[in-house]
Structure formats: structure tokens, C-alpha cells
Design a protein around this nucleic acid. Structure first.
Length: 459
RNA sequence: GGUACCGUGGCGGAGAGGCUACGCACCGGAUUGCAAAUCCGUGUACACCGGUUCGAAUCCGGUCGGUACCUCCA
């Protein structure tokens, strides 16, 4: 029998058994990217970590019973700024960035989501929700053209981040606008600015403008998953203010006790001990690393090598380690048909608050049963290539090149050199044989003399 | 200042009141013309100080250290 899924709920800070609201059916909303630039590794971490949740839910509840929503934020200050500075239209910028994002996720073996709403497709729903908030006394149009959510109108605001309003006001970065009734009030709708193009704004009862950041998730999750749904996930930097404000909007507009019942947050990705962030400018994009010759699976395993809630320090050593571990798995697997069932030990590790390090340790114990190992690793979204593709390049779409630097040697060239070396060995001309091997080593080709002859792989 | 999280062997990283994972690296051996790969073997770690307990790395208190969030952020 399968054990229960347990998840750490940010709302309660506790590990809780997960039970869907509607038995047998699950709804998940994951905060997706703002599309104005290539995805960085932090975006990838969130997508990959919660892809494990997606895979687990699909396994335990069935593909047809899981609604997994990941939004695309395609209206935002940064998008407009980037479009203005590059001269690319907003539509082209967001469409291109969205495709880049999806291509990167495919390389990382992230499953397609069931719904991918774009903010601009839900403007009407956002306006309706803002109007409801105004009608119910939770929001007001301010003198400066902004429509603001009035935080003191919600007595239990701050539950998710466990902040009192005093704490929030004491924060150094609160912008105290004279138009706000309370310093902690936040924007639902902002008026068009003089330098903003008309196609970046929308008509509303409060004049032309565009939605604030938080309202889109409230409107889209309601439209697709309902007023209350099972799981809402994202990076832990979104706990405050983004998710706190989503909760405020949704609960006040819908008059519900919850927005999502379970909130999951992944830890931040670090680089050299510091948080990688757009503001610090120390970030790698997924594209950077794929371009350096790292496989998507190597990146994926690296991102899953720590528990999702803990900070993850991303290093070159970690990539090497991930690559070596995958080499080992691909050697053991050797392409046999994977077992029908995912080994329970691996499933149970993931059911236990998405414990991917534990799951990988379990996989390591399956080296004697390669069909089991393959089934388990594929459940984690790994071993997606054939061993031949993995070791000798020619990977699938989006898998990135091999380690490169093979000086243009084709498999035929390599085979010819191997044949020449075999002749030299037969003649006991080991100097010549070693020279050929050294030549190949320099170009990133490793030879392995086995019982059935010599095989090669890319380092 | 407020709110959280965290300190495990060379590195990464689970677990968790007694059975001391797992990987990577290293070292020794087997194998090999030499390598590579593989196989065998070696590693007794839980920041510090107290407390609870028959027993604590695991529970409690404190200390030190690290990180994040406090209206750009996944």
C-alpha cells in the first residue's frame, strides 16, 4: 500500500498529511515567471522542484485528476521597461521570452503543465475582482489614480508571513505614499504613466492602466481552480509580500477562510554563498549552462540534490558530481526496459515532503536491478536519454551539446582511429596505440577496452 | 530591530533518542600491455556549553556562526 503524501505547509510551518479537498482530484497553482528575459537558475529550481510535486501527484492520483497551473506574467513594469529600451514590441518580447522559458524547461525535463494562463488574458477577471473588493470595503481608488487594497480592512492579514502590521510598517522599505490610507496598503490597479504605450494598458472603471502584480494570481487561480484550492507553490521570496497579498485579495473578495489550503515554498538558490538574484546581477541563466555543454539532466539532478526548502549553493563541483552520478546510473541501466512500477522506497521518499536526496540515495541501492533503477530515475525525470545519447552525444532536442571541444571528430573518425589503434595493439606497438588514445583524450573522447572490443564516450 | 531557516565525515547531503544512509572525491587491492570502466576494501561525522535520559548528533535551554525575507525577486 502506498503511504500518504506529507508536505510542509508554510501556513502552519508544519509537516502535514496532504488530503485533497475533493477526494481523488488535486489543484495546484505555481507562480511562474515574468517574461522579459531568459530564465535564471533560480527560476529553474522552482520549476524543477515543483515538477517533482507534479510527477508525484500524477502518479498517485492519475494524470487526468491533476490540474497543475503555472502562470505567465506578461504585464509588468520590467517588461515595459525592457520593451522600451530594446525597441522590441511587448507582444514580441513576451512571446519570445515565454518560448525561451518553455524550451529551457523542456531541457530540464520539466513536464508540461495542464494550464498556462497569461495575465493579459485575464484582465476582465482582475477588474471584476478589484470591483468586488471596492464594493466590499476592502479597496479604494486613491487620489493619485491607483486603486489600493486597504490592509487594515482585513483583521487577520499577515498570517502566512507571520507579520504584524506594526512589523510591516517598521520595515525600512515601506513606501509611504500620501495617497495611501495606510502605509501597508498595496496596489491593485495602477494608472497609465505618460511614457507607457497604450498597448501596455487596458481600460477599466478607474481609467486606463494596468493591474498590480498580486491581483493576477488571485484572478487566474480563481478562474481555473476555484475560490479555494489545494496547493499554492512558489519561491520563499514570494511569501511576503506577493503571496500574503494574494491571500488578502482572494479571501476578502471571495469571503473564504482560505485561498489555498497548503502553501509550499522552495528555498533560494545561492551562488558562492550569496543569494542569486536579479538585483544582485550574479545570476546564471539556464541557457548559459546549457551553452557550456552541461546536459539538462545534469542541471536537473543538481537542482534536486538538496531538499527543496533548503537553500542550495550552486557550484561547479556540484555539477561535476551530478554528471558523475548520472554516468553511473546510465552505465548500470544500459537501456533495458524500465520496470512497470516505480519502486516504493523512491515513491515514499518523494511522498515525504518531496525528499529528493533520499529518493536518489534509494536509487543508488538499486544498482543490482537496472530495470528498477531506470524506472525510479525516470520517475525523477532523469535517464530520459538512451545511454548511447548520453555517452556519445547526439542528445535529444534541447539537451545541449556534449562537452564540446571534440575538434570536429565524427563517430566515423573516432571509429577509424579505434580501428587503427586496434591494429597497433595487435602488433604490440603500444606507443602508437597510446598516442592515438591520447589524441582522443585531448578532444574529450575516453576509450574503454572491454571484453567485446573498444568503446568510446565523451568525457 | 522584526519574521523565519540552518550549522552532519574532504565535499555534497538524508536521517534522527539506542541499529551511525547515500553520492562524489581520495587512498589500498583485484583487473588491464598501460589506462578507462568495473569489482573488493578502508573512512565512526553530527558547531559550542549546559540540562533531561540507562543512553542525545537526534529532546530542552543558552552561546557562537551562517542565510533569507521585511512592498523588484523563483
Amino acid at each position: 500500500m502506498s503511504s500518504a503524501i506529507r508536505l510542509t505547509n508554510t501556513l502552519t510551518r508544519q509537516l502535514e498529511p496532504f488530503e485533497p479537498m475533493v477526494p481523488g482530484r488535486v489543484g495546484v497553482y505555481l507562480c511562474g515567471p515574468t517574461v522579459y528575459d531568459l530564465a535564471h537558475l533560480g527560476n529553474a529550481r522552482s520549476a524543477v522542484n515543483f515538477d517533482m510535486l507534479h510527477r508525484l501527484l500524477r502518479h498517485d492520483f492519475g494524470v487526468a485528476n491533476v490540474a497543475f497551473v503555472r502562470n505567465i506574467t506578461d504585464v509588468d513594469d520590467k517588461i515595459i521597461a525592457r520593451a522600451l529600451e530594446t525597441g522590441v514590441s511587448i507582444a514580441d518580447l513576451t512571446a519570445g521570452s515565454t518560448q525561451d522559458y518553455l524550451d529551457d524547461l523542456e531541457a530540464l525535463c520539466v513536464l508540461s503543465v495542464t494550464n498556462q494562463p497569461r495575465a493579459t488574458e485575464y484582465i476582465d477577471e482582475m477588474i471584476a475582482m478589484i470591483q468586488t473588493l471596492i464594493d466590499k470595503g476592502h479597496a479604494y481608488p486613491a487620489d493619485d489614480g491607483n486603486v489600493l487594497f486597504h490592509v487594515p480592512s482585513m483583521p487577520d492579514y499577515g498570517q502566512l508571513s507571520r507579520r504584524s502590521q506594526d512589523d510591516i510598517i517598521a520595515g525600512a522599505r515601506v513606501e509611504v505614499s500620501s495617497a495611501k490610507r495606510d502605509p501597508s496598503d498595496f496596489v491593485l490597479w495602477k494608472p497609465q504613466k505618460p511614457d507607457e504605450p497604450d498597448h501596455a494598458t487596458f481600460d477599466s472603471p478607474w481609467g486606463r492602466g494596468r493591474p498590480g502584480w498580486h491581483i493576477e494570481c488571485s484572478a487566474m487561480s480563481k478562474a481555473i481552480l476555484g475560490e479555494v484550492f489545494d496547493i499554492h507553490a512558489g519561491g520563499n521570496d514570494l511569501i511576503f509580500p506577493h503571496h500574503e497579498n494574494e491571500i488578502a485579495q482572494s479571501r476578502c473578495a471571495n469571503e473564504t477562510a482560505h485561498m489555498a489550503r497548503t502553501w509550499l515554498h522552495n528555498g533560494m538558490l545561492m551562488v558562492e554563498g550569496q543569494k542569486m538574484s536579479k538585483s544582485l546581477g550574479n545570476f546564471f541563466t539556464v541557457r548559459d549552462l546549457l551553452g557550456q555543454g552541461h546536459r539538462g539532466e545534469t542541471l536537473r539532478l543538481s537542482l534536486l540534490s538538496g531538499h527543496y526548502r533548503a537553500p542550495l549553493d550552486f557550484t561547479q563541483a556540484k555539477l561535476t558530481e551530478a554528471k558523475n552520478r548520472l554516468d553511473g546510473w546510465y552505465r548500470v541501466w544500459d537501456g533495458v526496459t524500465p520496470a512497470d512500477k516505480v519502486p516504493e522506497a523512491v515513491l515514499n521518499a518523494i511522498r515525504d515532503d518531496l525528499n529528493t536526496p533520499q529518493a536518489m540515495a534509494e536509487i543508488d541501492t538499486l544498482r543490482g536491478q537496472s530495470d528498477q533503477l531506470a524506472a525510479a530515475a525516470q520517475f525523477l525525470g532523469l535517464l530520459q536519454l538512451t545511454p548511447d545519447q548520453w555517452f556519445r552525444g547526439g542528445g535529444g532536442a534541447g539537451e545541449g551539446a556534449g562537452t564540446g571541444g571534440d575538434a570536429g571528430l565524427s563517430p566515423n573518425d573516432i571509429d577509424a582511429l579505434i580501428a587503427e589503434r586496434a591494429e597497433a595493439k595487435k602488433a604490440r606497438d603500444f606507443g602508437r596505440a597510446d598516442a592515438i588514445r591520447d589524441q582522443l583524450t585531448e578532444t574529450g573522447i575516453v576509450l574503454e577496452d572491454g571484453a567485446g572490443g573498444t568503446t568510446w564516450r565523451r568525457a
